[in-house]
Design a protein around this nucleic acid. Structure first.
Length: 883
RNA sequence: GCGGAUGUGGCGGAAUUGGUAGACGCGCUAGACUUAGGAUCUAGUACCUACGGUGUGGGGGUUCGAGUCCCUUCAUCCGCACCA
């Protein structure tokens, strides 16, 4: 009667595999439920104990939904392009496809060992040409789409109207015009370049000190021809779409923040003596009267013209220095603001005052117009700058009743909140907002600017064009040919996928091109007219494959189209998407962007891909440090009487909670857990640790606890001496139905930890009673099965059932067993529970009072006091206020 | 600095959303069984000066009643960070 999980579990895994138990059929008559895990990057290290957390949660839900009669789509795949396989190839010459294949095999083996109910016939792999054929195809759609601002909608490039004046300038001009509209375009872009590795680095490979994480050498900015995607066009849609989604508030906020919509105005300032205008973007056009200087970014196009001869040397030196600074130097490390005067003045349009124009790197080139009007009295950054360089501070907004009002009025403090305008009128220009508040002043100024043609209300986004190419081998090739005459064409659909060439040498080339530039045979193409061209040597970033994989699961074998339209309409959107919070912005924003483009083009049927999103919390581990804070690896720690000591020095250590890491030697491998306790224990423990969305530490003893529970379940429920015929004991029957309800609702609410607790409570009662009916035992096996499917199936078959229980209907709750006619009330005096009392539910308040107050146990709490108030809340509580 | 969380026994965590604080599990204590084991079973286990009192990071408030609501404060974690 021993719980032999090592025999039970592989047996059922083989059964499921052999019978294709979890194969999903496209039965459109059934209600669908699409439940998706973020697919893993198959690293050489194998599955981490964090992976099964989310996977188990979705598996429980999937199994539950199947039992509830839903048609469940629950697939798995691999996000297998990426750097490590390529680095390994550079070192060993092993083709990344080989490394990747091995890693995927290992991941598949590990995932199957957990007993997850995926439909393995739908497995996908982003590196499979049959898959990335469609990644390339989507890229072509992006390239051939423009964004219609008016309709707020992506449209085919064929519907783009070319203005006559552009046409008049010839084919080249038309091509350039279209290129400026395409959602995917090819242009110079700044990238990080490591000169010692001869490679481009992703932002996340650059450490905060500006060095390359791989080699420690400093990275530099380099201009290279790159593919970019015009995601900011979708800023408004990506922002407003969030309101319709059932996502964690934190993720929505992060996306809103990243999109960074702001409203304000663009205003033109005449540059004195140059006959040119300088356009600024400001969110505070209402503070124009307080503008005492202007700033342009060092990279601003007009800097060269702006600077006067006597300032040339200084300004050029400053620009050069700014170019060498990393982003970080230009932001938070730079406590002091820097900048130089250009020698030039601009004219403030509201009052015709001359104000100096500076160059300073606190103004960024990529945002707004790359130039600002500075209002030190009402902007903290400008205030700091003005103080640094002794520029006048003119207060134009009276904060009224605040402590430091006098300081604000005299320009000695900065005020960014609302107030009443002062000094904000000019007879010369005819504008006057004195006495108004911020909202009114803003509206009036914008009207005035628009009327005069000096400026207009504008919306800006922080979101920038998405740098979409990498100088790498192991990624999707762009289906693009650059011809010798300058034309760019896309590879025809029938010639997709464009596969990667085999290489001997995976090192990047000297010029900053990807290793693909070494593949001569692949690289050079000739068209039927003898024209020569070169294939694009950049590859797509890892995001590309993960941007749309959820769509391919719907129809993964389809060779003729990305998916069948009917199937897409049936399965989309994803009902629940579970994964780590680290993808809160990039992956989820990029996916939404692609999805919206596909929606606009009529390729998908929903505007948003993921209806509900859930982030599982990270699994941490205990770690140890000395009392002075030095970390000690876990293999050097021993526990004595609840305290921890260093095995070598004997020093007392402190237990802390930290991320699992090789350096702390506290990484838990799921394989080891399965070997010692079985997959059901692993699953159960991961769910029992605590709320799914919280971070929590792994504790080996906890695994033992759930293992003991499963062993107790097995010993009791597999023993036919305990399983009897006849009527169920009323107490058992009642608890069973409470448990059915609790387990079901806890699964729906993803409160798996308390669901397990309810199963444990029932198991404890069953064991205490010593016997249950067969019907009860079968019901228990069913509600246990989503959590511990191997044990569930085992018990189910022990009871004589030949088929899997995976599609058995979820047990119904017999409400008649749960309705009570009495309730055990806690009786409190002054809010303190003193005793319990069973009372009929239909008793009236007066009788309840009589019954409670006449109870002998009430005497001592009332003695010498008077009853001031008697609270009776039916089915809840009785409280007596005495005093 | 801004935004988002989270603080409950020795530990992981429950608490039907204003109604018995500490479910369930770990650990611990005592006992049973025993060809001794990291097995199983039974009982106990928030704290204290224990027929009572105190307790959900601290302080205040609302209420018959507060872990839950309000004000205030502290600590930790995660994002973002010169976006004009």
């Amino acid at each position: 009667m021993e719980y032999k999980f090592a025999e039970i579990e592989p047996k059922w895994q083989q059964y499921w595999e052999k019978n294709k138990t979890f194969k999903t059929v496209d039965d459109f008559s059934k209600q669908k439920y699409y439940i998706l895990d973020m697919f893993p990057y198959p690293s050489a290290a194998g599955l981490h104990v964090g992976h099964p957390e989310g996977y188990t949660a979705t598996d429980i839900l999937s199994r539950y939904k199947r039992m509830k009669g839903f048609n469940v789509l629950h697939p798995m795949g691999y996000d297998a392009f990426g750097l490590p396989a390529e680095q390994y190839a550079i070192q060993t010459g092993t083709h990344p496809a080989v490394t990747t294949g091995n890693n995927c095999d290992n991941f598949r083996r590990q995932i199957k060992a957990i007993g997850l109910s995926y439909d393995w016939d739908r497995e996908i792999n982003t590196t499979d040409p049959k898959y990335f054929k469609w990644t390339q195809w989507i890229f072509k759609q992006l390239y051939n789409t423009w964004f219609d601002e008016e309709l707020q909608k992506g449209r085919p490039i064929s519907e783009l109207v070319i203005p006559e004046e552009v046409k008049a300038n010839g084919e080249e001009a038309v091509r350039a015009y279209i290129s400026e509209k395409r959602l995917a375009y090819y242009d110079n872009a700044q990238v990080w370049w490591c000169d010692s590795c001869k490679t481009v680095c992703a932002n996340e490979e650059v450490l905060t000190d500006g060095s390359h994480e791989k080699c420690g050498n400093p990275v530099i900015r380099k201009n290279l021809k790159q593919w970019l995607l015009r995601i900011p066009h979708y800023g408004e849609r990506l922002l407003s779409g969030l309101d319709t989604l059932d996502w964690p508030a934190g993720v929505k906020d992060m996306q809103r923040n990243w999109i960074g919509k702001s409203t304000g105005a663009e205003v033109d300032f005449e540059i004195d003596g140059l006959g040119k205008k300088l356009r600024v973007y400001t969110t505070r056009p209402d503070t124009l009267f307080g503008a005492t200087y202007m700033v342009v970014a060092p990279e601003h196009a007009l800097v060269g013209e702006l600077v006067t001869d006597d300032k040339k040397e200084v300004v050029e030196a400053y620009i050069k220095a700014a170019a060498l600074k990393s982003d970080l130097d230009r932001t938070d490390l730079a406590k002091e603001k820097t900048g130089v005067f250009t020698g030039r003045y601009a004219i403030n349009p509201v009052n015709n005052t001359k104000i100096p124009v500076w160059v300073a790197d606190y103004v960024l080139t990529g945002y707004g117009t790359g130039a600002i009007m500075a209002v030190p009295a009402h902007d903290t950054r400008d205030f700091e700058f003005a103080k640094e360089f002794d520029i006048p501070v003119v207060c134009i907004l009276d904060p009224k009743e605040v402590e430091n009002r006098d300081e604000v009025l005299t320009g000695n403090a900065c005020w960014t909140e609302d107030g009443t305008y002062i000094n904000s009128a000019s007879a010369e220009t005819g504008i006057d907002i004195n006495g108004l508040n911020k909202a009114a002043g803003m509206a009036k100024i914008i009207d005035w600017l628009e009327e005069k043609g000096i400026g207009k209300a504008t919306v800006n986004f922080k979101l920038r064009d998405w740098l979409f190419s990498r100088q790498r081998y192991w990624g999707e090739p762009f289906p693009v040919i650059h011809w010798e005459d300058g034309e760019v064409t896309l590879v025809e659909d029938e010639n997709l996928p464009l596969e990667l060439p085999d290489l001997e040498e995976y090192k990047p080339s000297e010029t900053g091109e990807s290793p693909l530039a070494n593949a001569e045979d692949w690289l050079i193409v000739t068209d039927k007219n003898g024209r020569k061209g070169r294939r694009e040597t950049n590859t797509m970033p890892q995001w590309a494959g993960s941007c749309w994989y959820y769509l391919r699961y719907i129809d993964p074998m389809n060779a003729d189209s990305i998916f069948d339209v009917k199937k897409e309409q049936y399965w989309m959107p994803v009902d629940l998407y579970v994964g780590g919070a680290e993808h809160a912005v990039l992956h989820l924003l990029y996916s939404r962007f692609w999805h919206k483009v596909l929606f606009d083009l009529g390729i998908v049927s929903t505007d948003e891909p993921f209806q509900k999103l859930y982030n599982q919390g990270m699994i941490l581990a205990f770690a140890y440090e000395t009392l002075t804070g030095a970390k000690v690896t876990s293999d050097l720690v021993e526990e004595k009487d609840g305290k921890y000591f260093h095995t070598q020095t004997g020093e007392e250590l402190r237990q802390i909670v930290a991320k699992m890491s090789k350096s702390l030697k506290n990484v838990v491998n799921p394989d080891d857990v399965i070997e010692r306790y079985g997959a059901d224990s692993l699953r159960l423990y991961e769910m029992f640790m605590g709320p799914l969305d919280e971070r929590k530490p792994w504790a080996e003893n906890g695994v033992k606890g759930v293992f003991n529970f499963l062993a107790r379940v097995y010993r009791f429920f597999s023993n036919n001496e305990n399983i009897v015929e006849g009527e169920e004991d009323p107490e058992v029957a009642k608890l069973l139905h409470q448990t059915i309800r609790k387990v079901g609702s806890d699964i729906e609410n993803m409160k798996f930890n308390t669901g397990i607790s309810a199963l444990m409570v029932f198991n404890n009662l069953a064991i205490k009673k010593g016997k249950v009916t067969k019907a009860t035992a079968e019901t228990f096996a069913k509600i246990l099965a989503p959590y511990a499917p191997h044990l569930g199936e085992e018990l189910w078959s022990i009871y004589g059932n030949a088929e899997t229980l995976a599609y058995e209907p979820w047990p119904l709750v017999d409400e008649s067993l749960l309705t009570e006619d009495t309730h055990e009330y806690p009786v409190s005096f002054n809010g303190k529970m003193r005793f319990k009392m069973e009372l009929p539910l239909d008793m009236q308040q007066a009788e309840v009072e009589k019954a409670v107050l006449s109870d002998p146990r009430s005497e001592k709490w009332i003695e010498g006091k008077s009853v001031r108030k008697f609270i009776y809340v039916p089915k809840k509580i009785i409280n007596i206020a005495v005093g």
